[in-house]
Structure formats: C-alpha cells, structure tokens
Design a binder for these strands. Structure first.
Length: 449
RNA sequence: GGAGAGGUGGCCGAGUGGUCGAUGGCGACAGUCUUGAAAACUGUUAACCCCUUACGGGGUUCGAGGGUUCGAAUCCCUCCCUCUCCGCCA
C-alpha cells in the first residue's frame, strides 16, 4: 500500500505510472471509491460514537421506563449500524483490491518502455569469447560429461525438470558457496529461510496479488492417496502456504512488523534457498536446457536501509557491484541494463538486470535482477525505524525503511555460461579458478573414461 | 498422531458482561536532586484510521474471524498460533 495521501494529491502521477507499468487501473475511479468509502466510514463512526456514549450512561440510568426506551432506541441503531457495516465491508473489499493494484512511481531515470525489448544497455564487461572449434551448448556438454540429466528429471517431475549429477551437482554447490563466502566477507548475514511462506509474506513483498499463478501452493488434502484414484487434491484454503520463488520473500519479511533504531541500519542480508516457479504462461518459451526451469537455487541479497533516496541508491550500486564481482571472478562477460517501466514490477522504483553472455543463445541472458522499492514493501510489511533527525525532546518519528534486493547468483542458469564459456575442444570444461577450492582442488570436468 | 495448558499494551502480568484502551510492575523518555553518575522522587509513555486549515473531536484494536447482547477483553462457535508431556521421525 502506498501513502494514499500522495495518491489523492497526485492522481495523474500514479495514472502515468500505471500506464507505463502496463497496469490496468483507473486511478480516478479508485479515488472516487476511496471517497465513498470514507464518507460511509464517517457515517458509521458517528453512529458508533452515539452507541458508545449511550452505553457509557446506561449503568447510571435508574428509571425503568427510561431504560426500556433507551434500549429500544439502541436496538434500532444497532440494526441500522449492522446493515451499514455490511455495506462498508463490501466497499472495503473492492477498495482493498484496487489499492493493492496501485504501483509505485518509477524514478525519473527509468526508461519508459513496454517490455524487456526496450530495456537500455548501460555498460558491458568482459570479452565475448570466440572458439577455434564448434562450441557445444550446455545440454550437449552436460549430457556428454554425465553431469546434467534432463530426460530423467522430466520422467520424475515433468517438463522443466532436471538432475544435476556428479561434478555437475558439485559445481552448483561450489558456485553457491563461493558466492555466499564473497558476501559474508562483505558483511552480509546469511540466512537459510523457510521455503514456504504464507499469504502475508507473499503480499508483503508484493508478489501477491497478481503473481498467484506463478507460485506453487501447498497445503493439500491428504485424502486422495496415491493409487486410490486420480481425484484431484483439494487445497485447504486456511492452511495454504506458497513455495517461495525467491528467498527475498522470507528474508525481506523477516523483520515485518518491527521497528529499528536508525543505528541498526542498514541490514545486509543474504538468503540461500531453493526457488520454485510454476512458469505459468511461458509454455513453449525457453524450452531448451536449464534456462527456464521450475526449481533452482539462488543466493539473494536483501537490504533494509534508511528512507533516503541517496542511501538506497548507494546500496543499490553496492549490491549490483557484488553480483558483478562474482561474475568477474567466474570469468563471465555480461552487461548491465536499465530495466524499462513495462518490464519492472508493481512495487519497484528502479531496476537493473545483469545479463550474462551465453554462447548457445548467441546473446545475453538475464541472470540477475537488482531492484529498489523505496518504501513499497516496507509499508506492506510494516518495517519501520526511528528517524534520528527528529527534534530532541519528544518521541522520534517513525519512518518506513527502504528495501532493495539483488540476485548474487542463481543456479543452474549460471551454469549455462560457465559450462559453455569454459568448454574445451575435447568436450571438457575448465573449472574457474575461484571455484576449485570448493571442489577439492579439481580444475577440470572431463568425460568419464 | 494422543493428552493438556495458554495467547491482554515495548516486556511481565491483573482483569470473567457496563463509566475498561484496560489496575500494577518493569523498561523507555523528560524533570527534580547531584560537581557528574547511581539511588530516590515527580511526570510522560500504543498503533492504525476518520472528521478538522488548525485547536480539537471521534472510531477501531485484548491471537483471527463469526455469533449472543442495548453494551463483550470478559459468554458461545470456528479457525490460527505458542508451550508442556507421550508417540513417531530426518
């Protein structure tokens, strides 16, 4: 939820943000509803005030006849209040649904565009490799090396599933651990968070409403046991949890409802987790290999900081650099793009993607996503801090923190460029030097004899 | 899975139908005293929302949601969560 006062005073600002972010919302219609709601609230509160006043007097009324009359009157009032409250509840529901659609306003520097084709390249790093031989793609390489097994993954878990095997699984762990260590050295606190989250966390991080189709829901009726019939498992509404698509959901929610002292900020957090994505609506897209799959592992950076655009901008640059440091250490060429309005989320005010060169795609593929939210998530999550700049004497003003997050590494997608770029003519893959300590000193993955 | 206990303000903990947003304690903040500190004493200490330019007024919140009632922290129902013991288990 946004600062509604801001929306009320600058409707056109938010209408433009809706347009640029491809969000279908009539801000004027929302504000009209907002006004109706407030008017009805005022009416109801006036009735409630009367009821309360009379209730307070009630014990002092001794006269029987008078008491009878008051009770009769109050009965009528209670009746009326009840119907009005039902009206308000209906209005509230509609209001909340619209309110959650409201986007944050992108910074002025964000390019306006309709989708990822209109993202703007900011800079590139590294040299795009050329091969003296016909390079293989990661699936060919991985299959020949017996480190990736997609057909059997599909056999067990359906399309977009895979096994990493042997040195492939070890390579993944090595990349993750190397990344974790690099962040820990920079002062980040590592988390292994819950992989299941409730609605509040999904909503608080602004994945819901809107992203329900992308998340797996768990909390199923156990009755239709396997083998007893193909009756569809029913989801128990009250017991429902969602498999997280990123540890950001849990890590950013970690402090929900809490208030920091300013001296405790910023928080530099890193989450290591499996990530689950239904990839609904991507049928037929990126079907080859390990690019777009349902389950992966990711090291995510999450920052909570003061409500100051300069501070969060600085931290945005910092976590972007952290990811770049990892890519550079792995010897992977990449580029950084400014994500345009149409390709950014509802809550984000600024976003960069890092795209890593993938020979088999003959282009850059998205591997990282670095977002600044300002207070959008913090408002939903209720994360505040005491602003020290409050004049001395009285209670400090509480402000919402700014939140940011960025991928530091996501696997197996990152294995695509690692395998493809570091492949050798004989089908072996040279392990990047920084990963070797995590693989017992091994320097190359070779075909088995 | 079986049995039991419990969820009240920043924390602890009273409160079982009515002037209760809630006694008391702790903590925090401010002041008095003190060279300073401690102690002692005094005072102030919730969040969110609505009306109002403001002063101020009002509403909601005692795990959540429903119900009974003129009136609910208190009675009834459902759910969620926490804790203890037993069982099972990585």
């Amino acid at each position: 939820m946004l600062d509604l006062d801001l929306v009320r005073k600058n409707p056109e600002l938010f209408q433009t943000a809706c347009k640029n972010k491809n969000i279908k919302l009539d801000v004027a219609a929302f504000l009209k509803l907002d006004e109706e709601r407030r008017a009805l609230m005022f009416e109801n509160q006036t009735m409630q005030a009367e009821r309360n006043a009379v209730s307070k007097k009630m014990p002092t009324i001794k006269d029987k006849a008078e008491k009878e009359k008051v009770i009769t009157d109050m009965k009528a009032l209670a009746e009326k209040l009840k119907t009005e409250e039902m009206k308000l509840a209906a209005l509230d529901k509609e209001w909340m649904a619209m309110q959650l659609q409201l986007p944050s306003v992108p910074l002025a520097s964000v390019p306006v565009g309709k989708d990822d084709t209109e993202n703007v390249e900011l800079r590139t790093h590294g040299t795009i490799p050329t091969f003296a031989f016909e390079p293989k793609d990661h699936v060919e390489l991985g299959t020949a090396l017996d480190i990736i097994d997609i057909p059997r993954g599909v056999k067990i878990a359906g399309s977009r599933s895979y096994f990493l095997k042997g040195d492939g699984a070890r390579l993944e762990l090595a990349v993750l651990l190397f990344t974790v260590d690099s962040l820990v050295k920079k002062g980040f606190t590592l988390f292994t968070p819950p992989l299941m989250a409730n609605y509040a966390a999904m909503m608080g991080t602004s994945y819901f409403p809107g992203g329900e189709e992308s998340a797996y829901a768990v909390g199923v009726d156990r009755e239709p046991e396997v083998g007893l019939g193909e009756k569809e498992a029913k989801q128990i509404e009250s017991d429902k949890h969602y498999l997280v698509g990123t540890s950001e959901v849990a890590v950013a929610s970690y402090h929900s409802g809490e208030t920091f002292k300013a001296s405790e900020l910023p928080k530099r957090y890193a989450g290591l987790s499996n990530c689950f994505r239904r990839e609904a609506g991507t049928y037929g897209k990126d079907m080859h290999g390990l690019y777009r799959i349902h389950q992966f592992q990711k090291v995510e950076q999450v920052i909570l900081c003061e409500n100051d655009p300069e501070v969060s901008a600085k931290l945005h640059a910092e976590i972007l650099q952290n990811a770049e440091d990892v890519l550079q250490a792995l010897g992977l060429p990449y580029r950084v793009v400014a994500v345009c309005t149409g390709d950014m989320g509802r809550g984000q005010v600024y976003k960069n993607d890092i795209e890593t060169w993938m020979p088999s795609r003959k282009g850059y593929g998205e591997t990282h996503s670095c977002s600044t939210f300002y207070e959008f998530q913090a408002r939903r999550l209720g994360i505040k801090y005491e602003d020290p700049s409050t004049g001395s004497g009285q209670a400090p003003t509480k402000k919402f923190v700014h939140t940011l997050n960025n991928t530091c590494i996501a696997s197996p997608r990152i294995l695509i460029p690692i395998l493809e770029i570091h492949q050798n003519q004989d089908g072996s893959v040279t392990i990047p030097e920084v990963l070797r300590p995590y693989m017992g000193g091994q320097s190359v993955i070779s075909p088995r004899a």
